[in-house]
Computed example of a mutant assay.
Amino acid sequence: MALLRKLKKKVRKVLVFFVKFAKRLIIMQKNVGTKDCSTTTGASKFREGKEEEKEENFSTLLNRCFKESNEWYVDSGCTNHMTGDEKAFLSFNRSITSKVRMGNGALVDAKGKGTISINRKGSGKQIHDVLYVPDLEENLLGVGQLMENGYSLVFRDNYCRIYDKIEPNQVIVEVKMIKRNFPLQLHYNALKMKL
C-alpha cells in the first residue's frame, strides 16, 4: 500500500509539471499569435486549485494537441466560421483568401473558404463560407454568421439552442455550456470536392 501511495504521489507531481509546462506553451502561443479568435477552452484556462482539475485540464490539452477534433465552439466573438482542419471541407476554394484578426490582436492568413457537410440527427446539413485558417486550434461557429444565414440562437439556462431557418420552431441543436463555452460535436460527411 505504501508503494502505491508513493507511486500516486510521483504521478501527481509529474502531471502538475506537465500542466505548468502546457500553461507556459499556451502563453507563448498567445504571444506569437497562433491562438484563435478570443475563444478559450478549459484547457487554456489554467486555474490554481485541486489536483483533479489540473489533471482534467492536462487531459483536455492532450486531446486538443494529438487528435483531430470534430468539436466546434459556438462563438459570439468570432465574425466568421473558421477551422484549421482542411480535411473537414466538402468543397474548398483556395483562391479565396483573407486576413483574420485573432482575439489577441494578431493578424493571420485565411488560406481558403469552403463548405462543410455535417450529419446531424440523421439528416445532412451544410455549413457554408467556412474560412480555413491553418494555425487555428479550435473550430469556431460564428454566432453573427449563423444569424445572417437565417438561424436563430437562444442562450438560456446554460444552453445554446440553434433553431432552423426554414422551420423556426424546430431546434436543430442544443449545446450545453461547459466551462463557459458551448462545445458542439459535429460529424462530417465524407465526400470531398476541391475547387
Score class of each variant (00 low, 15 high):
L62N: 14
L62I: 14
N63A: 15
N63K: 12
R64D: 13
R64H: 11
C65D: 13
C65P: 01
C65Q: 12
C65L: 15
F66Y: 15
F66Q: 10
F66M: 13
F66W: 14
F66G: 06
F66L: 14
K67W: 14
E68L: 13
E68D: 15
E68M: 10
S69N: 08
S69M: 04
S69D: 07
S69V: 00
S69H: 04
S69K: 04
S69W: 01
S69A: 03
N70T: 08
N70L: 05
N70A: 02
N70M: 03
N70V: 04
N70E: 06
N70R: 12
E71W: 05
E71G: 09
E71F: 13
W72D: 05
W72V: 07
W72Y: 11
W72R: 05
Y73H: 15
Y73L: 15
V74K: 05
V74F: 14
D75M: 07
D75A: 07
D75I: 04
D75R: 11
D75N: 14
S76K: 04
S76V: 05
S76L: 05
S76A: 10
S76T: 13
G77L: 06
G77T: 08
G77N: 07
G77D: 04
G77Y: 03
C78A: 15
C78N: 11
C78Y: 08
T79N: 11
T79I: 08
T79R: 08
N80F: 06
N80R: 01
N80Y: 06
N80I: 00
N80L: 01
N80Q: 04
H81W: 06
H81T: 01
H81G: 07
M82P: 06
M82D: 06
M82N: 09
T83E: 01
T83L: 00
T83I: 05
T83K: 00
G84C: 02
G84Q: 03
G84H: 00
D85L: 03
D85N: 10
D85Q: 00
D85K: 04
D85C: 04
D85A: 02
E86A: 09
E86G: 03
E86D: 02
E86V: 04
E86Q: 14
E86Y: 03
K87T: 00
A88P: 03
A88S: 10
A88T: 05
F89K: 05
F89G: 02
F89T: 02
F89C: 00
L90F: 15
L90T: 12
L90C: 12
L90V: 11
S91D: 12
S91G: 02
N93R: 10
N93Q: 06
N93A: 02
N93W: 07
R94M: 10
R94Y: 12
R94W: 07
S95L: 12
S95A: 11
S95C: 10
S95G: 08
I96V: 14
I96M: 11
I96T: 11
I96P: 01
I96S: 08
T97Y: 01
T97D: 00
T97L: 06
S98F: 03
S98I: 02
K99H: 05
K99D: 06
K99F: 00
V100I: 14
V100A: 08
V100R: 10
R101H: 03
R101G: 03
R101Q: 14
M102F: 13
M102V: 13
M102C: 15
G103H: 10
G103R: 13
G103K: 11
